[in-house]
């Protein structure tokens, strides 16, 4: 999921108008101005939300040529957090993320297709639980420019959806809970 988020951010960067010219950005995980969030239906009755607390990533972005943007994100699967210790323990186990065997999930963008109006589609490879599949992130530029502390930042938001079974996660959560939505919030600090 996180992987997709990263892609989204990348895509967004591509689309973004008006910031600086091509530049490399580090996702601001240090200041926690980025998050990889997920949500999944519970029984078809409500949404269960969680996130990955630990990840890192970079992207390149040129407001003049957003289609040249690239995004790379690496997620520490062990950091899955749904605000419930017993559930998180289960999510880290073999039924779900199997973090002992697969401690990392990654997203590597392959292409960014600007859709105008600050929006873009980031296509990339999401590797989760050892399975690599192409995902498309719907990304949007949020804002960018000089920050108050002498740096330059740009931020994107993105969403995508993955099917758990595609990544070998077959624990039966019910018919309404086969897909997970990912919501990615990314702020990059110009390097």
């Amino acid at each position: 999921m996180t992987l997709r988020l990263t892609s989204l951010a990348l895509m967004a960067a591509l689309v973004l108008p008006g910031a600086a010219s091509a530049a490399d950005y580090a996702i601001d995980t240090k200041g926690a101005h980025a998050s990889i969030n997920f949500r999944i239906q519970h029984l078809g009755f409500s949404w269960l939300a969680g996130r990955f607390d630990q990840f890192s990533g970079t992207f390149s972005y040129d407001d003049k040529a957003p289609d040249a943007s690239k995004v790379n994100v690496e997620i520490d699967t062990n950091s899955v957090n749904s605000n419930h210790a017993e559930r998180d323990k289960h999510l880290r186990g073999a039924d779900f993320l199997d973090v002992t065997k697969f401690p990392k999930a990654t997203f590597v963008s392959k292409s960014v297709t600007p859709a105008g109006d600050g929006k873009a589609t980031i296509t990339g490879d999401l590797t989760l639980r050892g399975v690599t599949k192409e995902v498309k992130i719907d990304a949007a530029y949020v804002g960018g420019g000089a920050d108050p502390w002498g740096g330059t930042r740009v931020g994107f938001t993105g969403t995508t959806k993955i099917t758990l079974a595609d990544y070998g996660i077959n624990f039966n959560l019910g018919p309404a809970s086969k897909e997970v939505e990912l919501a990615l919030e990314v702020e990059g600090v110009k390097q």
């Binding site: 605000n83 419930h84 210790a85 017993e86 998180d88 323990k89």
Partner: peptide
């Protein structure tokens, strides 16, 4: 300690 790690 398993069940109370999150403060529950």
């Amino acid at each position: 300690l398993i069940s109370t790690a999150d403060g529950r």
